[in-house]
Amino acid sequence: MRHSTYLEVNLGHIGSNFEKIQELAPRAEIVPMVKSNAYGNGMVPIAQFLVRDCGVKKLGCGTLAEALHITEECPDMKADLIVYSDTELHDSDLRQAYLNLNITPVLAQPRDLELVLKDPTFKRMPLIVKLNTGMNRLGFTWEELEPFVPRLKERGIEHLMTHFARSSDVLKPGDKTHRQMDEFNKVRTALLEAGVEIRGTSVSNSGAIEQKFGVEETFVRPGLMLYGPPSVTDPISWNGAQCSRLVTKVLSSFHVKKGTPVGYGVNVTPKDGYMVVVPIGYGDGMFTYFSGTKLNVNGCDGYIFGRISMDVAYIFFDPEVSSKIKVDDRIEIWNHDNRVITDIATQNKTIAYQLMCGISSRIPRIYKVK
């Protein structure tokens, strides 16, 4: 664990982002994604905040284990938990959770739907059915779903959904996202014409919501945007506040001459400079490929130097910076401006999702409301 290196999570920013999402989708019910430890920000406190302060009635999990963790930590929480991928339906012991708790699986494979329709103990469980409209990850094609239509007429579908593969691109008529939407509508129409009742629908993930695409459905499912960063980054249109602030400190600092070796490997300074050692490394989520990443500290431009080790990293500055950055000064790797984490991700040819989810359990989460 750490003390002076921490992730400060502002719940108030999440609340503000939630309100902005509702403005983009005024008629839809918001189903926030809290999977992967709420994108690295802390699943339980964020789930509690969303239900208590934002009035959320449904939360999205990636795995059954995540949903069980929430129910164990929050036994009085009045919200339905939806498991979107790793449902564990075919484990006879684990699937009892769907019968005894407020947890519902997304049915995305023929064997899952067959199990639920055949097992009489599941006869009252609402059916959430996912369509594969072109992402080709999980979900039913129409050819796979059509044989189930006679039995679906008896039960109805509580929630019909799909997932867009390229909604983080700027949308254009006829593109992949529009074709997926057309396929979704085609299957929806076929089900309705066959007499299957569909009580709710959803298609929009963060990128689609940012572009107001598919927001007229019953639900929207924001993930990344709820926590601040945009999904569509060229250009950025989402003005959400980055909920977290990754803070560390100056552990040590010293002047270096050109050619000075620093750290593991053969990494020598390219010129005279000022080196700052910070107590955050790949054991904390500061990935090794961050080497070379440009940062601004106390108004001074520097970059991560050499090999990042498990426990520390180095930031290289021009020599004159030494009067502005001292030992024990606080350093923000990213702050509440969503452009900062997006820029770091872009520099490293990755995405903000990975940066946030990568913060390890060694980094304490500190929660603030304002």
Rank of each mutant, 00 (worst) to 15 (best):
L7H: 06
V9D: 05
N10S: 07
L11Y: 08
H13K: 13
I14S: 02
G15D: 07
E19G: 03
K20W: 08
L24V: 05
L24P: 03
A28S: 15
K35S: 01
K35D: 03
N37G: 01
G40Q: 03
Q48I: 00
F49R: 07
D53V: 03
V56F: 02
K58H: 11
L59H: 10
T63M: 06
T63A: 02
I70T: 01
E72R: 13
P75S: 04
K78F: 00
K78N: 14
L81F: 04
I82T: 00
V83L: 14
Y84T: 00
S85K: 14
D91Y: 07
Q96N: 12
N100Q: 12
P105M: 08
L107H: 06
L115N: 04
K118L: 10
D119I: 10
P120K: 15
M125G: 06
P126H: 10
L127T: 02
I128M: 15
V129I: 14
V129S: 08
N132R: 05
T133D: 06
G134W: 03
G134I: 06
M135A: 11
L138A: 13
G139A: 10
L145G: 10
R151D: 14
K153P: 05
E158W: 10
H159G: 04
P173W: 12
K176S: 12
K176I: 15
K176D: 10
R179G: 02
N185D: 11
T189N: 14
A190I: 00
E193H: 12
G195C: 07
T201V: 09
S202I: 08
V203W: 05
S204Y: 12
S206T: 09
S206W: 10
G207Y: 01
G207M: 04
Q211E: 08
K212V: 13
F213G: 02
V215H: 06
V215E: 10
R221V: 12
L224P: 02
L226D: 02
G228D: 06
P230K: 06
S231C: 14
V232H: 01
I236S: 05
I236C: 04
G240N: 04
A241M: 13
R245P: 00
R245T: 11
R245E: 14
L246V: 07
L251Q: 12
S253Y: 11
F254D: 09
K257S: 08
K257R: 15
K258I: 04
K258G: 12
G259T: 07
G263T: 11
G263Q: 08
G265H: 10
V268F: 01
T269D: 05
P270W: 00
K271R: 14
G273I: 00
M275E: 00
V277E: 08
V277P: 04
V278A: 08
P279C: 00
I280M: 11
D284S: 00
D284E: 10
D284P: 07
G285E: 08
G292Y: 05
N298E: 13
G299F: 02
G299P: 05
Y314V: 05
I315W: 02
I315D: 07
F316G: 07
F317V: 06
D318V: 09
E320K: 14
E320C: 05
V321A: 13
R330T: 14
I344C: 06
Q347A: 07
Q347I: 03
Y353K: 11
Q354F: 11
R362L: 13
R365H: 09
K370M: 05
